[in-house]
């Protein structure tokens, strides 16, 4: 999965590029351009909703994908931008037909390394990430439990509002 390695290399090149130091919005735009083709955000959004996805109209689905993508961006862009030379190691990769997994680990400071595993699916000849497992926890699975709890307790409209609100609070907090 050279594609994952290449994307990580590009991301690191952008965040360590001193010319972006005072141009955060330009950097974010650049990061988006590099990351977007490698991640299947609409697939991630869909599986994070589970069977509730089927109850949504096409317009609602599009709206949800936008909100979910914005939440992921707000959450992880900030994390990526705070990169301080942590060591990223590529451990191994496995492939089973049109599914693959790339195992990496991130070592920061003197602590235990954190495993970050990318799960990819191939469609139309391109490999795209459909889930990331951080420290053994599937990101999409974790959101699915959260989202469905909120839907069951308060309904879909409340979930969408909560996602949008979370995204804004993360963005304003940085």
């Amino acid at each position: 999965m050279a594609a994952v390695k290449e994307t990580v290399r590009q991301v690191l090149a952008i965040v360590t590029d001193p010319s972006y130091k005072s141009a955060t919005s330009a950097r974010r735009q650049k990061l988006r351009e590099v990351i977007a083709p490698r991640f299947d955000f609409s697939d991630m959004a869909k599986s994070s909703l589970g069977y509730h996805w089927r109850t949504l109209t096409p317009a609602q689905r599009a709206d949800f994908v936008r909100a979910f993508t914005a939440l992921l961006e707000a959450s992880y862009m900030g994390k990526i931008e705070s990169y301080k030379g942590q060591k990223i190691s590529y451990l191994r990769e496995t492939q089973d037909g049109s599914y693959a997994q790339v195992y990496t680990s991130i070592q920061s400071g003197g602590g235990e390394p954190v495993s970050v595993n990318y799960r990819l699916k191939q469609s139309d000849g391109t490999w795209k990430v459909y889930d990331v497992a951080i420290d053994q926890i599937s990101l999409v699975g974790n959101y699915r439990n959260q989202f469905n709890r909120v839907i069951n307790d308060k309904g879909y409209a409340q979930l969408l509002a909560a996602i949008k609100q979370k995204e804004q609070s993360i963005d304003s907090g940085r």
């Binding site: 959450s75 926890i137 699975g141 439990n145 959260q146 989202f147 709890r149 909120v150 909560a162 979370k166």
Partner: peptide, 13 residues
């Protein structure tokens, strides 16, 4: 910071 439903995030984790 990132969880939409903190209880659900910790439970699932």
């Amino acid at each position: 910071r990132y969880a939409v439903d903190l209880y659900g995030a910790v439970q699932d984790g």
